[in-house]
Design a protein around this nucleic acid. Structure first.
Lengths: 242, 242
DNA sequence: AAAAATAATTGCGCTGAGCGCAAGTTCGGG
DNA sequence: CCCGAACTTGCGCTCAGCGCAATTATTTTT
């Protein structure tokens, strides 16, 4: 797991093709640090109980280097959802064009958020390892997500999904995000749906599998896309306040 | 603006009725601190350039007391959107029952987010003062919202809107939030719509007034409520990944 | 292949946010 | 009028985060 000893099981299969060797290594250590942050957070029941030094040590770098990549522990954790958001947007844009909008969106999300399936992308495999490696599960995740201090940053990083999704949704709908609010609203709704479904799954003890919950929620939110586009200039007929 | 000298223009009209005198004073200083944080943030173009001591001084309390109410500068700023969220939820639940769902929601939001209208609630009046008192406007707000460090906390506090809205939406729809995801999804979508509309209004220079933008966005998001309720147990017919 | 240029890592030391503690102050109830 | 509880304040400590400058690794140039 250290940045150096890791040179690298399956050298060619990395998350995002990197250009120069330097850049590759940079991404690798970056990811290493994030993973270390995640592990320690789960192990210690909360980011609060993890010092930057520990993270740095686990990742095999100096404390100073850690702060060189991320300006806070929270940012280190947040990099993971951020990356995932990028992958979801990519997956969505590569869905077959004849697929219904909501299905394409839902499956793109589900495919990435579901850790299972084939040993695909490297980071996913690692995350699954961490999860599978015993002990960590709903319970641990819950304590992390509920942590008062980390949550704002975590959610902000999950909100990357909205950012990444907006342009591809706009393209698929044939709308210009600079002219029409609809793509942004749909993206925001989908992002919210993912968050809500996850929270629901984590907190209420529900029988339905996470996958089904996610798919349902996203498809529901995606239905917004069938709204008529918003004419920004003109207000609706008459609805002024009394 | 100090906590002491402010004893209080229009003593009876306070945001939330307070029980004991002590509790009232507590809420008052709390609000004072938040307002001070907002003012200074706007004046100095970013929370980054404001020290806790300055906020405390402006609010007329000691630095230690400041940290006694809020454990970070960001939290102090975030209290304002949080309070506003509570007012919106209240306003929505008091809308006439025969009003269409989306209209009720949109108007509840617009009424609170629009600073104008009558000199209603005290905090709104103050905020308007701040805004009106020259210099601060879109531009200043933009620099605040775009600030890297404060944004996560700000957005998290705006997300209070979702939290507050969920139960009242569920009630109006006749659904149980513990059984059905739809109320949460609608609330999340509305929250996202507000955020998106605001961002759009702040960044693209658009001709439409903020009010119209907000109303449109919220009504669009609220349309989700007409989705058929989600049967959590059963998945849709067949949509497994290949 | 060596040397020069560029980029990444590291150690050191400083600033300042946030908090525990204990003393002082204000307020409500009997 | 006085007692107890809640609130405020000052002091001092810890540690996250960052600027700086030196060191090491990597790419490019000659």
């Amino acid at each position: 797991m250290s940045a150096t000893e890791n040179q690298n099981e399956n050298e060619n299969e990395n998350d995002f093709e990197a250009g120069s060797r330097r850049e590759r290594k940079r991404l690798e250590t970056r990811n290493c640090i994030s993973q270390a942050a995640l592990q320690l957070t789960l192990e210690n029941n909360g980011l609060q109980n993890v010092s930057p030094d520990e993270i740095a040590e686990r990742a095999g770098v100096s404390a100073r280097t850690f702060h060189n990549y991320f300006h806070s522990r929270e940012a280190a954790l947040g990099a993971l959802p951020g990356d995932r958001a990028r992958r979801v947007a990519l997956a969505f844009s590569e869905r077959p064009a004849d697929e219904p909008f909501d299905v394409a969106l839902a499956e793109a999300v589900v495919a990435e958020y579901t850790l299972g399936h084939e040993p695909g992308k490297e980071s996913v495999r690692k995350l699954r390892e961490i999860m599978a490696n015993g002990s960590f599960s709903k319970e641990a995740l819950r304590t992390v997500m509920d942590e008062e201090g980390a949550r704002p940053h975590l959610l902000e990083s999950m909100r990357q999904l909205e950012e990444q999704l907006t342009p591809v949704i706009a393209e698929r709908l044939g709308l210009d995000p600079a002219q029409d609010l609809l793509p942004r609203i749909v993206a925001a709704a989908v992002n919210g749906a993912v968050r809500v479904a996850t929270k629901y799954w984590l907190h209420e003890d529900v029988q339905a599998p996470y996958t089904a919950l996610l798919r349902q929620a996203v498809r529901t939110a995606a239905a917004l896309a069938q709204q008529p586009a918003l004419p920004l200039g003109a207000s609706l007929p008459e609805n002024e306040n009394p």
